[in-house]
Design a protein around this nucleic acid. Structure first.
Length: 473
RNA sequence: UCCCCUGUAGCUCAAUGGUAGAGCGGGCGGCUGUUAACCGCCAGGUUACUGGUUCGAGUCCAGUCGGGGGAGCCA
């Protein structure tokens, strides 16, 4: 085996590689034969959007036996000399005059190889998730996803945040962010029972009920009250029966937590983070973004440029409701009439972010009755320091809040919402020992990618999507 | 979970209740520094499944399963 040169490295500086020898390894996209005695093989190794054209002469020993049998998907290794070529549009390109070509693996039955050089529907590709990585779309998606993840870590690290690895499995029954997946080693066909007939979880692996996490927030708060600025970034699980283009049962979430911070600093952080992610995408993955503009969403690049250029709109919930009410009074048709105190419907959120402002909107200070117990009560006694960021096209992309740091107020809220204070003993301890104002938020990674690429469905923004009734691959 | 749409060749889609079709992809041949190549020929089907209406069902009806869109829940 040779160590091949990534095609990305070659394409980055064609003039530097011209007339040099190299070995490239990858998968065939297309093959065209010329009776002038050569075949053209387009080879992709996924290192960048563009493939490399191999020019294969019929003088190779395996030309008739192997080269002429190459079809889309075959894996090959080619050795030869790189030459600079002039593209029809005047751009400088590079191709390889092949001197040796080794086939690692043929495609068993080219007739049924699912990834053909043509447009496939996203639904079909979802059913071919093990091979869709070889398409232009998912290659670009995979590279952009990587770049955005790197940008997340870079942004936080540059701003003094530490990455905290919060647990995937939790026996805490106080996360309260949604339906949870159970984690158990009990024999489902033969469950141990307590004398009163209930399942005896004391015999389970952890000696109590345990689940997959729905949020790392409570855990990461513990570390914020020690390392000051922290974040989690990892998989999160919701067993909700949600069948939409914006929901996954397993998704990745970014949850920073800032000590000595209020809601405004929280929103600043969210805005800075998203802009850093998109700026990195625009500069580092221009080739892939160009493809999304051509084939998926014409606005993909200009949308991100606009996103990065202007400050987010920031309004209070009360003002947001006023705007929606005024629109309704002015004849705008909503299915649900807006009123102060309601949890805004998608249609209201869409109206604000798409019609009124045409850019991301931070909505702050929601009525306390529609928000979680841990959100900090404002001085008006009616609202909490919560914020949602709404983006055109996908709706809610961030949910965050300043946390209630006063033990007496927190306890009152826990009681008010009929929760069990004892279950929150360690969370309450944070307020008993050196409590400080702090704030944080959750950013849905796949939703952010959907926004950036224009892909309309988060199921196409993760390599292997998990949704209700669907856990293939 | 609710509402709506949908299921035909490997893929994308046609077919008024009356013989199952095309383009792409694949195979063979021709042409060509080709690049969404082009030209000719060939192969490819239990029309998702089960039942019903009808002389006759891909088409109409009922049920089941799958897929999609919207809503709710949220990120």
């Amino acid at each position: 085996m040779h160590a091949g040169t990534p095609i990305a490295v070659i394409r980055r500086s064609p003039s530097e590689w011209a007339s040099r020898r190299a070995v490239v390894q990858g998968w065939v996209r297309t093959r065209r034969d010329s009776k002038a005695g050569i075949s053209f093989v387009n080879l992709s190794d996924g290192s960048c959007f563009d493939a490399l054209q191999l020019v294969v002469p019929n003088t190779l020993a395996n030309y008739a036996t192997e080269v002429l049998r190459l079809t889309a998907g075959c894996s090959v290794e080619a050795e030869g000399t790189l030459v600079q070529v002039q593209g029809k549009d005047g751009t400088v390109g590079v191709e390889m005059q092949v001197e040796k070509l080794q086939v690692h693996g043929f495609v068993e039955d080219p007739d049924t190889y699912p990834i053909q050089p043509k447009a496939h529907s996203m639904e079909f590709l979802r059913e071919q998730a093990h091979l869709r990585s070889r398409t232009n779309t998912f290659g670009a998606l995979g590279r952009i996803r990587h770049t955005m993840a790197q940008a997340v870590h870079r942004y936080f690290s540059d701003n003094g945040f530490f990455w905290i690895h919060t647990p995937i499995i939790t026996a805490s029954d106080c996360e309260g962010a949604g339906e949870m997946f159970r984690v158990s080693t009990l024999d489902l066909a033969n469950l141990p029972r307590t004398p009163d007939g209930k399942v005896d979880f004391s015999q389970d692996f952890f000696g109590k009920e345990s689940h997959l996490t729905v949020s790392g927030q409570l855990n990461v708060e513990c570390w914020a009250l020690a390392l000051s600025r922290v974040y989690t970034f990892g998989p999160t699980f919701r067993a909700e029966n949600s069948n939409t283009s914006r929901h996954l049962a397993e998704f990745w979430m970014i949850e920073p937590e800032l000590a000595f911070a209020d809601l405004k600093m929280d929103a600043d952080c969210a805005e800075g983070l998203m802009k850093a992610m998109f700026a990195a995408t625009l500069t580092e993955r221009h080739d892939d973004m160009k493809f999304f503009v051509e084939r998926v969403d014409k606005e993909a690049i200009t949308r991100l440029e606009k996103f990065c250029a202007a400050p987010f709109e920031r309004i209070d919930y009360t003002e947001a409701i006023r705007l929606v009410e005024r629109a309704a009074a002015g004849g705008h048709k909503f299915e649900y009439a807006p009123f102060w105190g309601m949890d805004m419907q998608s249609e209201h959120e869409r109206y604000l972010t798409e019609q009124v402002f045409g850019k991301p909107v931070v909505v702050m200070n929601y009525p306390k009755d529609i928000k979680a117990f841990y959100m900090r009560l404002n001085d008006d006694g009616k609202t909490v320091a919560a914020m949602d960021i709404l983006a055109p096209g996908i709706g809610e992309i961030v949910g965050g809040s300043q946390r209630e740091e006063r033990l007496d107020v927190l306890d009152a809220r826990i009681t008010e919402m009929k929760l069990d204070p004892a279950a929150y003993w360690w969370y309450r301890d944070l307020r008993r020992y050196g409590s400080v104002p702090h704030a944080g938020f959750g950013l849905g990674f796949e939703r952010t990618i959907a926004y950036a690429t224009g892909l309309g469905n988060v199921r196409d923004c993760i390599p292997f999507p998990r949704t209700p009734k669907s856990c293939a691959f």
